[in-house]
Nucleic acid binder design. Structure first.
Lengths: 147, 147
DNA sequence: TATTGTTATACTCTATAACTATA
DNA sequence: TATAGTTATAGAGTATAACAATA
């Protein structure tokens, strides 16, 4: 079995519905207002940084603006995000993390980091670093050529 | 940035909705009867081997029996799968790939393999093998502790 | 009584369309 | 006229419930 074929099988399992819903559930469990649908929005905002617009956020998480707007609204309702007027454009909204939102990001992030650190525990630092680099490249490559 | 954190970010991107739908679309494009929802069922059957029951297949792809039954029906309608009476249990159905189904599996598989081979082209064989092994372990680890 | 497969129904999540306000 | 954001509607996909047949 070739390495690429073994990777293909592994990715197939990773992308199965129950794999991702289970992973999302384990990351967001017990955090009020966070679930498998709102988590990517919160996480995306943390990745982009405070002050981005709804449209920018939607593009980053791969959802339509309308859906993103609803998720943002839910997260605002739970006190994890905040909407502010946008300085440059009165039509736009600047979305920001609240303190609670930032804490929620930290909780989910450390949960996932802990899981992965455990799974990478058998590798020495150089190997782990190498793996991360290749994984980043593979993910970027799989994402880039999607039309 | 730690390796586990870099992996966490990469996995986050990989699990975004548009990443997987885009990948599935690129794999199944042009193959009649195959889409992002039926592909995992076909692929799962190829992984398990001919003759498994609907319930077994459902468990392998992480979907409810009812949904799996409908997808199997669609794939049968497109000539990619076949339902046969199960030898041991008259209640059960043995699901099998047709010749066309086998060809469809080969097409999608070789497409994904080619994508990955391209992305792993910079690695020497030992490195690629090592990456595949670690990836398999990470995916298995992320899946095992769900629930 | 429990289980397999299937079908009917309800629910979740997303996209499209329509609307208001601003550029 | 075009774009940002939001809300209303429709569509896609899944789970739950209910059924008939067999164990």
């Amino acid at each position: 079995m070739t390495p690429e074929h073994r990777c293909a099988d592994a990715l197939g399992l990773l992308l199965l519905r129950d794999t991702r819903t289970g992973l999302h559930a384990s990351l967001t469990g017990g955090i009020d207002g966070l679930d498998a649908t709102t988590y990517p929005v919160l996480s995306g905002l943390a990745r982009l940084g405070d002050g981005v617009t709804t449209t920018e956020l939607a593009s980053a998480v791969g959802l339509d603006r309308s859906v993103t707007s609803r998720h943002v609204g839910a997260l605002v309702g739970h006190g994890l995000l905040r909407r502010r007027p946008h300085g440059d454009d009165a039509r736009a909204v600047a979305v920001e993390l609240t303190a609670a939102g930032r804490a929620a990001v930290e909780r989910t992030r450390s949960r996932l980091d802990a899981r992965l650190a455990d799974l990478l525990a058998g590798l020495d630092p150089a190997e782990a670093d190498r793996f991360a680099t290749v994984l980043e490249g593979v993910v970027a490559g799989l994402r880039s050529s999607r039309s």
